[in-house]
Simulated scan of single mutants.
Amino acid sequence: MSSVTPYLMVDDATVFRAFLEQVFEAEIKEVVPLAQDPMRTIHAEARIGDSAVFFADSGPTGGRCLSSPTEPVHVQMWSAVPDPAAAYERAITAGAHPAAPVAVQEDGSRMGAFVDPFGTLWWVTAPA
């Protein structure tokens, strides 16, 4: 089964979090601070009903906490797929630029990323 999760880059993740909690009664499942600046968020997950929204702080010029080979990338998509390596290879063949090779993560999941020809950063992942 495949799915796609929106990943929003915002000017202030703390304010955005409060907005989601107030407006949608979102449950914040995870917040990962940026190591160099703990007041900024490099990754967060909000649950709104059965859906997830990922978000993070963008930089002052619209950049992200993480760099990619093609700047600027303002939209990230998180996609759960059966085979991240196959999706990654198909994307590169279709003209995407590599951002992070598919690799096994600490939790045993597999994850990689690419920037499509339109400037969107796609993360492809499969659980352990």
Rank of each mutant, 00 (worst) to 15 (best):
A99E: 14
T61I: 02
Q76D: 10
P101W: 12
E71I: 08
I48E: 09
D116R: 01
E25G: 15
V15T: 15
A128K: 08
A86E: 13
I92Q: 06
K29Y: 12
E30D: 14
G49E: 05
S3F: 08
G62T: 03
D50V: 11
P6K: 08
V102Q: 01
T41I: 15
W122C: 11
P33I: 04
P38Y: 05
I28G: 01
G95L: 09
A13K: 00
V124W: 01
G95W: 07
L34S: 03
A113E: 10
A96K: 00
E71T: 13
V53A: 04
V102H: 01
S3L: 05
T125A: 08
A126V: 00
A18N: 10
C65S: 12
E25I: 04
A91G: 13
G63I: 08
P101T: 14
H97W: 07
H74V: 15
T14R: 09
V104Q: 14
V4C: 13
A18G: 08
I48Q: 04
Q22R: 11
D37N: 14
F16Q: 07
G62I: 04
P33A: 06
I92T: 09
M77I: 15
P6N: 11
V10R: 11
V102G: 03
G63N: 12
F19H: 12
L8M: 09
Q36D: 15
E71R: 06
A96D: 08
A126P: 00
V124F: 07
S109D: 01
V102C: 04
A99N: 14
A52H: 10
A86D: 13
Q105H: 04
A46I: 05
A128S: 12
A100M: 15
G49A: 04
Q76C: 13
M77R: 00
V4M: 13
H43W: 09
G62N: 03
P98V: 06
A35Q: 14
E25L: 08
R17N: 06
G112Q: 01
W122E: 07
G59R: 00
C65N: 10
D116L: 05
D11R: 11
R40Y: 02
